[in-house]
Simulated scan of single mutants.
Amino acid sequence: MPSGRVHEAINLTVLGGGAVVYLAYGGSPEDPQGLAFTLAYLAGTFLLSPDLDLAEKGTRSQRRWGLLGLFWRPYGWLFRHRGLSHTWVLGPLTRLGYLAALLGGLFLLAQGVAAHLGMPFTLRLPPWPPEVWGSALLGYYLSQWLHLVADGIWPDHDLKRLRRPR
């Protein structure tokens, strides 16, 4: 299986090639959809890698989070390496859900502290059109899928295991 550096090199190569094609067909680097796609793709490559399921201390994926990498240790305990977290649809969704739960907990904590101090605290998502959110989701999933392909996990991977007689 490829190392973390190889996964990153593959993802960055594909992103660079895609950017060249995008710009050649008249795409603008300032387009919100292209920017959302790129940022989500990079976040999926460097911050939300499928290898966050490694519960070992100091994995490459967790180190990128710095001290906050400790918050990803329970994720590694919940999902065995190359298990559910390395599936094509649910795997990336588990990391988004886990991140949403972490951010939700942080939001509730900040809201409680602000209420205790008598300060108003609200949070609003940017009012981006659905196309921008869709581009971000596509960029994130594409980065995850390239990681899985490099690991030799194809979309029919789980189906083959189901069909195999035991």
Rank of each mutant, 00 (worst) to 15 (best):
M1Y: 04
G4F: 10
G4Y: 03
G4S: 09
G4T: 06
R5L: 05
H7V: 10
H7T: 12
E8V: 14
I10N: 05
N11I: 08
G16D: 00
G17Y: 14
A19I: 09
Y22G: 03
L23W: 08
Y25N: 03
G27T: 04
E30P: 00
E30I: 05
G34R: 10
F37A: 02
F37S: 03
L39C: 12
L39R: 10
A43N: 12
T45L: 05
F46S: 06
L47R: 03
L47A: 02
L48T: 04
P50R: 00
D51S: 06
L52F: 03
D53P: 00
D53W: 06
A55M: 00
K57A: 15
K57L: 09
G58N: 11
S61D: 05
Q62M: 13
L67G: 05
G69R: 13
G69Y: 15
L70V: 14
L70S: 05
F71V: 02
W72I: 05
P74S: 09
G76R: 14
G76E: 00
G76H: 09
W77L: 06
W77D: 09
F79Q: 06
R80D: 08
R80Q: 09
R82Q: 11
G83Q: 04
L84M: 11
L84I: 14
S85M: 00
H86L: 01
H86E: 03
H86S: 05
T87I: 13
V89A: 06
V89L: 04
V89N: 00
G91Q: 02
L93R: 02
L93I: 15
T94D: 09
R95M: 06
R95H: 07
R95T: 13
R95D: 07
R95E: 04
L96M: 04
L96V: 08
Y98A: 11
Y98E: 03
L99I: 15
A101I: 04
L102H: 04
L103C: 11
F107G: 03
L108F: 07
L108W: 09
L109F: 13
G112A: 12
G112R: 01
G112Q: 10
A114R: 03
A115C: 10
H116N: 13
L117P: 10
G118A: 04
G118C: 09
G118K: 13
M119R: 07
M119Y: 13
P120Q: 04
P120A: 00
F121I: 01
F121A: 05
F121S: 05
R124T: 07
L125N: 06
L125D: 01
L125Y: 01
P126E: 07
P127Y: 02
W128C: 03
P129A: 04
V132S: 09
V132M: 11
V132Q: 12
W133K: 00
W133C: 04
G134N: 11
G134E: 11
S135Q: 12
L138V: 09
L138R: 10
G139Y: 10
Y141I: 10
L142S: 11
S143I: 07
Q144K: 08
Q144E: 08
Q144A: 07
L146I: 11
L148T: 01
A150F: 08
G152L: 08
I153C: 10
W154K: 02
P155W: 10
H157T: 01
H157S: 02
K160Y: 13
P165K: 02
P165M: 15
P165T: 02
P165G: 05
R166Q: 09
R166F: 10
